[in-house]
């Protein structure tokens, strides 16, 4: 298990926990980043992280990504 900010580019992962508080947390969940969801890390460099979740592309700031716990499925 690792946090999304550390997930390498190109990997597929499964969301374990969405720990972001308040508004951000609810927004993430509504955008489909829920426990159990499979996501793909499209880009992870510098300050930004891009993932694909439930068919849509989402950019996430590093601070929020650090609170999302994932499990790698493949590289």
């Amino acid at each position: 298990m690792l946090n999304l900010a550390d997930a390498p580019r190109g990997c597929k992962a499964k969301v374990i926990m969405v720990g972001a508080p308040g508004t951000w947390g609810v927004r993430l969940l509504q955008m489909g980043i829920t426990p159990g969801a499979e996501i793909e890390v499209v880009e992870n460099s510098g300050g930004l992280i891009l993932i694909r979740a439930r068919g849509s592309l989402i950019s996430i700031g590093r601070g929020i990504a650090r609170r999302i716990l994932v499990e790698l499925i493949s590289h």
Binding site: L28, M31, G63, I64
Partner: peptide
Amino acid sequence: EEPELLLEIPP
């Protein structure tokens, strides 16, 4: 509060 970004990127 650290400025954060959470945006959907449509095609």
